Simulated assay, not measured.
Amino acid sequence: MAAARLLTPVAVEPLPVREWRAAALPVAGPVRRGTPPPYEPLLARRSSAAMVQTAVARVVDDGEPDIPRIVRRLARGHALARLPLRPVATLRFGAQILVDLGVGMEPFARDQGELVAQIRAVVGREHTRARYFEDSPLRGVGEEGRWSWGPYTPPTRGTRVLVLSDLGTGGPVAHPRRSGREEWAELTRRLGRAGCRVTAFVPCPPHRLPAWAAELMDIVPWDRHTTVGQVTRRLRTPDRY
């Protein structure tokens, strides 16, 4: 096969001279990062302690003698088999905190830690127990890493159970381990038989929650705009002991 023959140029035209009308961009300097905004917890700091106390407190007939009730019973000729006492709110029954570590709650990990610390400060460390789970407590809970998790056991009678979870509403749409009504209904049934009530702190607007959530447990919107009055209204009729 013969080698290709080089072509001989017949003319050479000079390149046109272009005049740039815009100045060249300056050389990029070092990146300056601004100061990140201060951390703000989901519950307002000025009222978070009052909200926690409202959510955990139980009403018991353990106050001063209820003189009006005593007088009415004696006036009707009824014997006092038991001295009527005034109802008072107490934290002595303690609290169990169920902290959801599922994918939907990952953006709120710091808020969970802040709220757990706030509950311990209000109720007392000796009366507060935190248990961690992923998506549903019925799949296993524990105080430390996942390697230590085991079956969920309800606390002693009268303990308030606080759930820090999105109740299966967050995370990717195709999340395969998303919890649902059946698991939360079973949890509330077990706690009801054990004499414990459930209050869920949920970091999403109430309209995003399914209707069954409010039917199963007390729901507190976990938001900066939540007030003590709203917490009180969302709690059902207080237990009496």
Rank of each mutant, 00 (worst) to 15 (best):
R18P: 00
V12E: 08
P221V: 05
T156M: 09
A214Q: 11
L43Y: 00
W147K: 11
I67Y: 01
A28S: 13
R69L: 13
P16N: 05
G171S: 11
L98E: 09
A211K: 12
E126M: 10
D100I: 00
S48L: 02
T227Y: 03
S136Y: 00
S148A: 14
I97K: 01
S165Q: 07
G104W: 02
T188W: 01
L187E: 02
R32W: 07
F201N: 12
R46I: 04
G170N: 07
A75G: 15
V17F: 10
T159P: 07
R120C: 13
G124E: 03
A4I: 02
G195F: 01
L187M: 04
V88H: 05
L164M: 14
V59Y: 01
V60C: 00
P87Y: 08
D166G: 14
T232I: 04
M51R: 06
G102A: 08
P151A: 13
L83T: 12
R190M: 12
R129D: 14
G150F: 02
V231W: 02
V27T: 09
P14Q: 14
S48R: 08
R177Q: 13
T237W: 01
L6M: 10
G158V: 12
A79T: 13
A4R: 01
R86W: 00
T188D: 05
T159V: 15
L164W: 04
A11E: 05
V122N: 06
G104L: 10
L115A: 07
G192Q: 10
E186Y: 01
E134H: 11
P221T: 06
Q118W: 06
Q53G: 05
C196N: 10
F93H: 15
A49N: 00
E143Y: 04
I97T: 00
G142A: 10
D61M: 02
P155M: 12
T8I: 06
G124P: 04
V17L: 14
L115E: 04
T232A: 10
I219R: 04
E114N: 14
V173C: 03
L98M: 14
A130M: 01
V12K: 06
E144V: 09
P155F: 10
E13S: 08
R160I: 14
M105H: 03
P37W: 04
D100C: 01
P87R: 15
S47P: 01
V141R: 03
R178D: 06
P221D: 04
G145A: 15
D61N: 07
A23C: 06
R189E: 10
T188Q: 09
W212D: 08
A213R: 07
H225P: 00
R5L: 09
A109K: 09
D66R: 07
R233D: 10
V99H: 04
V27K: 13
S47I: 12
A2H: 04
R190T: 03
F201Y: 14
R32V: 08
R224W: 03
V231T: 05
Q118D: 14
D223L: 04
A109E: 10
P154K: 13
E215W: 09
E186K: 10
V31T: 14
Q53H: 07
F133Y: 09
H175R: 15
E144H: 13
A50M: 11
V17Q: 15
V56D: 02
P41N: 12
C196A: 08
A23H: 11
V231D: 05
A28E: 13
R157D: 03
I119L: 15
L6N: 03
P172I: 01
P30D: 12
V88Q: 12
T8Q: 06
